[in-house]
Design a protein around this nucleic acid. Structure first.
Lengths: 207, 207
DNA sequence: TTATGTGAAAGGATTCACAGCC
DNA sequence: GGCTGTGAATCCTTTCACATAA
């Protein structure tokens, strides 16, 4: 089916398609054209079709795409037909906010462990988790079948936490620390830094 | 100086250079080569040089770049030599976490107003702000000289808030709502959605 | 000698445009 | 008639490689 290997940018867009389709399903829309999807996402119809074509032929000529079917295909492609367990490292202000974020669980992402180096934090409750010491990391990752790490430590600590997580088999990391980190091949990191986003926008604000 | 118009991707990378240079300055490093910068950011030296060359000739052959000087140049390019005032819309769990985020102020981004439609929220304190009703938006944007909007409302509300902000002259928006929004030309939006980031990573997790 | 700045080449991504199918 | 899937063309981005300068 995958005629060619899908480019990375396409992988970034798939979740956008997924989100749009989930909304369409909720709105009881059963079929959508590439143009319809494109308009909702501010893309072109050709791009939508080409993106999807890397993974198969999901549409029907003259009709478009079946919403439920395409949703299902995308969930399979992105490996979202399961729950992914995540470990949070760093339970400061930011870490606590992350634990309380309501968007993870409905989408199949579950924080099952929270870690900190600060002994004062260890044992305390965060959400409905009890903070564990970093020395527990290896154990918990195995016992709780954790596949994803979330980093919410001060920037100077980010690299060592990355190294520790990857040393324990974690290949997928969501980094909230405002720091550039080095990773080895096979590991995927996505960074969330609102300040970088803002700074790349003020460029256009020639007041 | 700008020999050619800088591509968009380059604008996205400038804040990364800025962050790396700020760290180097703190470490008392006075000069850095394109290779040095590249290694810190997992880029190539050619890319660093080409990126910077869109804005001027900041380096010295045989030496590299003066850290302080380049920092200053980048701050000018990105319009970061001032404080930008921001309005937060939506003071739910997420909105409150955003107000408490310590990363904004040290970087020159200041939340000066918080809005909500819920009358129960209006008047309450969030951080050291008092929640204003949406009907105050127009006034506050003018009086407090607000240039940036932050959206932290439920996804179904995101579009109307975008429209309201842009109708009141806001051209720069940081969107935390997990929704795709339509904007008119001249407006810049950056979206922060950890779930999208996670979903684009699980693609690689063929377990 | 060392490292920048930059045209030219290579590599990727997007758009075009149309044959093919429902 | 309407809309997909896809090679080909275009556009954009990155890398190469070297003349140039400190």
């Amino acid at each position: 089916m995958p005629v060619q290997k899908a480019p990375e940018v396409v992988i970034y867009r798939l979740p956008l398609y997924l989100r749009a389709l989930a909304l369409l399903e909720k709105e009881q829309v059963s079929t959508i054209s590439s143009l319809g999807l494109a308009q909702r996402l501010q893309l072109t119809s050709a791009q939508v079709r080409k993106d999807l074509s890397y993974f198969g032929r999901f549409g029907k000529q003259g009709k478009g795409y079946d919403v439920k079917k395409l949703l299902n295909e995308l969930r399979n492609i992105l490996n979202l037909n399961r729950v992914w367990n995540m470990a949070l490292v760093g339970v400061g202000t930011l870490g606590r906010a992350i634990v309380n974020y309501e968007g993870f669980l409905p989408n199949g992402f579950k924080i099952v462990s929270a870690f900190d180096i600060n002994p004062d934090q260890v044992g305390k409750r965060v959400g409905n988790l009890q903070v564990e010491h970093m020395s527990n990391l290896q154990n918990s990752i195995k016992e709780k079948d954790i596949q994803i790490g979330i980093i919410a430590v001060p920037p100077a600590r980010a690299q060592e936490v990355i190294d520790l997580l990857t040393a324990n088999g974690i290949r997928t990391i969501l980094n909230y620390a405002p720091a550039s980190v080095r990773i080895r091949p096979g590991t995927v990191v996505r960074s969330i830094d609102p300040v970088l986003s803002l700074q790349s926008m003020t460029y256009y604000l020639k007041t």
